[in-house]
Nucleic acid binder design. Structure first.
Lengths: 395, 395
DNA sequence: CACGTTTGTTAGTAAACCTTACGAACAAAC
DNA sequence: GTTTGTTCGTAAGGTTTACTAACAAACGTG
């Protein structure tokens, strides 16, 4: 069985990004779609709860043991699920045969194009653990040259994989539509580049492409139980990924999360590359903060408190922008991703403080603003989630 | 057949408001669920496209003529669909028998509790056209007394209905959970009032309750093709209703849209009832604007330009709060609902202008900010949509 | 060792939609 | 006036799906 034989799943996890009505597939539902859904449900149950018996899965999903047996035998035939032998612990009744997703059946490839100087990628197993890494220096490549680099990176990663690859996930900067066309990525000199289609043609594997921040939030969503998460990704630029009601938000123009050039506050601010004053990116992008701190270090007699003041003001600006979003969506979780030496300290404190002062405490009582725990690999892990979700309906 | 016999529809339109994972029903999908979905699909096709033949519906939905015939005969037996006789226009082939939703089979009841002085309600037909109205002065009633008024209003409306009532929709201020419990509505003195359950018990009819602004945006969503709409409802308070990816957003604490007490800008502002300075509600609520204008009229020599300046500043404040939300969600449509004499003019202009200046033009190019066309009845119409969607899967 | 419990399978049933086929009714062309 | 082709709605039969019922196997427990 080839990986491309795997069904796409209409309900469980497939609508990775909701798409405009015009692009949506027909809405009719056939019995076979129900089966795909239940199939994905079994995989999802095994994925999140780990090895267990068929009877356990039946209880968990509400389907009967008969149906689960049928679905599982199909999944075993496809190599996605494996029997692990009998359960060890002693209890009455016939001993259960444990089954689990065969985590050594497939690997995944993830690619992160969001860094300015380097394209990074990894081969991961189905758990999202990284088994091999690769990176290629970008050296300022743009346009076709940049694509050639991506293609080379993917080829290199595929050669590293030791078992069949389930699919490839790519997080790209810029505006990416649901078909994986990079509509616009100024830094890479891409416009209307059909990245998904070209990589799929080159590799004959399922390929999923989305905006880097939108990919990153998938990694974070897997780590929480919540249905609403906002991730702020601070690097060379500032972007956001958003999950509302358990579904990623893509936006009418496929540009959801592009908050870098929203103006903050009513008192001006630093001049931004886009020509305006006080854009969020001009306030809090990593290069800007680093430059400000470096400039300060150049000055004689600059103390830690001046350091903190810069970061505190930046954190405050983030809080100002987030307050209306948190209020409108009643978000329960906001996650920060970026250089910890800049963000994890007074910046974070100031952002939390500002957010609390600017939203209604009674309503947003259980709001949490925290640092991501995924560090540098957040986009790679998110890419893995994207592939799992797209190919198996698992998330 | 009683209206309560009608199936709830798991896919097509039923998940009116997404709910937290813990409250969600089991995810398994049985063949009968598929049928419910397809049934709703037929109703939706007829509802939006009007009278047509079974074969037309088959082509539209992708299901076969056989299946459509089967579903339609079921719907006819239930009294929801009626045959209208043969199609008139001349074309080859056997003449088609036109069918349509029987718009005279049921009426709907909608209730709007969002106004400060009066509870308003209406009996509507399936198209949402109002056939009868009723209102009861609130006279400051709170707590149980307010509920008694609502109950009386509903009773009065049900007595007015001439044909069976499909269901009752209620838009209430405050925080309303997916089960129709008003968790908190300070103005009405309600906390944890099970409004849905009590009205359902009193009337033996399907009842749907949601926040007034969240209800209002349903009416607006029906009027557009877009999957993302933000409605700002300005009255005694300021609230928002939000649809993202075609689905209403309810929020982790069921308080999505509660933006009245988000602080605007970084330069202070009027003192708000909540104790802080510069809340959106303190800037732009209808009573506050009216009072400001009245105060101005008391002053000698106040011209139209001073009038405009007050409204312009208010509109600007709204734009400041909306910019991050529009940017983060990449919204394509924002709608204003409230007193036209305040909002439809310089207020509107200033809001549009501010929004454009504070978001990225290339990304939010096709953003529209417009006045609602539904005037005073927006909550009533939204309540109708809520009932239609909940009972028939039609939206 | 008999008994109850749990697991996973077999066999048969009901529901849902499909394909195929057909009669009825019409317009257009001859 | 007849033939031809089209369209509509229905009927019959088949496939897929998940269900209920029943059972053998395998295990603790009293």
């Amino acid at each position: 069985m080839g990986a491309s034989d795997l069904l796409t799943v209409p309900f469980a996890g497939a609508p990775i990004f909701t798409r405009p009505r015009a692009l949506r597939p027909t809405n009719k539902v056939l019995p076979e779609h129900a089966r795909s859904h239940n199939r994905a449900l079994v995989l999802q149950t095994l994925y999140t709860a780990g090895a267990q018996s068929r009877a356990d899965v039946a209880r968990e999903t509400g389907l009967t043991r008969v149906t689960i047996s049928d679905l599982v035998s199909e999944l075993i035939a496809e190599g996605l699920v494996a029997e692990l032998g009998q359960r060890e612990d002693a209890r009455p009744g016939k001993p259960a045969t444990l089954i689990d997703i065969d985590r050594s059946a497939f690997q995944l490839v993830g690619v992160d194009l969001s860094e300015h100087e380097v394209f990074r990628g990894a081969v991961m197993n189905l758990d999202g653990r990284i088994v091999a890494r690769a990176e290629l220096a970008r050296d300022g490549a743009t346009g076709e040259a940049a694509f050639v680099l991506v293609d080379a990176l993917v080829t290199q990663l595929l050669a590293t994989a030791t078992i069949p690859v389930l699919g490839i996930g790519v997080g790209s900067p810029g505006i990416v539509d649901p078909l994986g066309v990079v509509r616009s990525a100024p830094n890479l000199g891409w416009s209307d580049l059909p990245l998904q289609a070209r990589l799929a043609a080159a590799t004959s594997l399922p390929v999923h492409v989305a905006n880097d921040a939108n990919v990153a939030v998938l990694a974070e969503h897997g780590a929480t139980d919540l249905d609403d998460v906002l991730l702020i990704k601070i690097g060379h630029g500032v972007g956001a990924g958003l999950i509302v009601g358990g579904r990623p938000v893509i936006g009418g123009g496929f540009a959801a999360g592009e908050i870098g050039h929203v103006v903050v506050g009513t008192d001006g601010g630093p001049r931004c590359a886009c020509g305006r004053d006080g854009c969020l990116e001009a306030w809090i992008s990593a290069p800007r903060l680093t430059a400000q701190l470096a400039e300060l270090d150049g000055t004689r007699g600059a103390g830690a408190s001046a350091h903190d003041e810069i970061l505190r003001e930046a954190g405050r600006r983030l809080g100002i922008v987030l307050a209306p979003v948190v209020g409108a969506l009643n978000l329960s979780e906001v996650v920060l991703s970026g250089p910890a030496e800049l963000l994890d300290g007074v910046f974070h404190e100031a952002a939390v403080d500002t957010l609390r002062k600017r939203t209604m405490a009674e309503i947003n009582r259980d709001l949490r603003l925290r640092m991501s725990e995924q560090a540098q690999d957040i986009v790679l892990r998110g890419a893995a989630v994207m592939v799992l979700s797209g190919q198996l309906g698992v998330s």
